[in-house]
Design a binder for these strands. Structure first.
Lengths: 239, 239
DNA sequence: GTGTCCTATTGGCTAGGCCACTGATCCAGT
DNA sequence: ACTGGATCAGTGGCCTAGCCAATAGGACAC
């Protein structure tokens, strides 16, 4: 039959396209369901029997999906108790790194590599919505600092907004992978006296460059900003 | 109350020791069996029915084990054909990306982000051994091109050597994560007429900067090199 | 030779069931 | 009142049995 025709584009026949198996779709549905309902670590999934029925698959298939999610580190299935979400998510690399104790310099380097590029991309690709999100984060950080806070949340949102503005799935994922590691260094950095204000100024430079659509300036501003953060980490190393 | 007492051990009370589920043991057995018999990519595992019988488990359980191995990227299960070993082994993100078809521009961007930084780090940290490896790769590529080849292997080794010379575990792992994706673009790039020679020259610049210990020059050379590669990818996109 | 069809083989998925584990509850003993 | 053990409902673990769907390769017609 002509079933083949729809699988034969002009392209070089990249990789034997794999059929989606049911368990993959199920796993996908579950993860999106988790995201939609804003479930966090520790919360429970419905019982297998119920979940299987609700998704319209057999328990065996659901079980495969759970195995997949378990391997990836999204959930932990506990015999006799239930299926609970684990916080880590991507975990694999993170644990490996964290196991080696003080990898902070490496985290900074990686951030530098990824975010500098992302800033440049953001300058080229940001939409008005992206810009709005960036500015909102900036304002939140400013308000928090004015009120005597450290602006941690705004800081995080800012970098998240810039990452999103880069419009690169792969880079986005990589940032997500080391996201948790970054968060740890971030808190340390902003705990330094006077640091929040400096950080805010750095963010302004980045935001301006992105708004102006100047990739080079955005990259440089981001690089400088991350370098500043790294000072803190090094200080801690000395201590 | 004394409810607290159970939360206050002298020791950290490690982690809720998780029972090994059968599928884990099965997956373990399979991987060791693979290793023992020296099976390589492309070779087949026995049929599910037979394998299940031989391992003394049900097909359902074996299927779970295969899902786990599939998620990790050890095997590929093909409906109607069988279960074959895949060379890779990291896979998770790769498939997610590949599923979205033409992500080549994103791959290039990510390469640019990671490798540019790695080149700079390599310029600062390379040992004599690193330098030797880089030069060896360069020579291999040159010889291959002289002989009319495309220098694919040398190219790959070169980038691997630079990555190693960066001495950053995290960045190294991220490169490994997208390694296969890069390989695909590499082969395409070097298939362009005249491209291998240009590529070789680009590599020389990078190697020289690293040898000279000049991070900025190394980063720039790497960036230019990757930009050149990206041209090819874009050409392909047009076609 | 070439293309088509058939079929054995293999994985995909379901249904239904029993067993094992967990946690909460209840109850007897102290 | 408190402790400890027994019970029980709910949950996942695993199995058996079976049918469906995809693949590859050979038989066959041309």
């Amino acid at each position: 039959m002509s079933e083949l025709s729809r699988d034969l584009p002009g392209r070089p026949l990249p990789t034997r396209l794999s059929r989606t198996r049911l368990y993959e779709q199920v796993a996908e549905q579950i993860t999106t369901w988790i995201a939609d309902n804003g479930l966090t670590a520790g919360e429970r999934l419905p019982p297998e029997r119920e979940l299987a029925a609700r998704l319209g698959v057999s328990r065996a298939t659901l079980s495969q999906a759970l195995v997949a999610l378990e391997v990836v580190g999204v959930v932990a299935v506990r015999h006799g108790d239930g299926t609970v979400l684990t916080g880590k998510g991507t975990g694999a690399i993170i644990d490996a790194i964290r196991a080696h104790a003080d990898r902070i310099p490496e985290i900074i380097e990686t951030r530098d590599a990824l975010e500098t590029k992302l800033a440049a991309l953001a300058a080229q690709r940001r939409t008005d919505e992206d810009l709005a999100a960036i500015n909102a984060a900036l304002e939140e950080m400013e308000r928090d600092i004015e009120a005597g806070g450290r602006g941690v949340e705004g800081d995080e949102k800012f970098h998240g907004a810039v990452t999103a503005a880069g419009h690169s799935d792969l880079l986005y994922r990589m940032m997500a992978t080391i996201g948790e590691l970054i968060r740890e260094t971030r808190i340390e950095s902003l705990s330094q006296p006077g640091r929040p204000r400096d950080s805010l100024a750095g963010h302004r430079r980045i935001a301006d460059a992105i708004a102006a659509g100047d990739p080079a300036a955005a990259a440089e501003a981001m690089h400088d900003h991350i370098t500043m953060v790294s000072d803190v980490a090094l200080i801690r190393d000395d201590g």
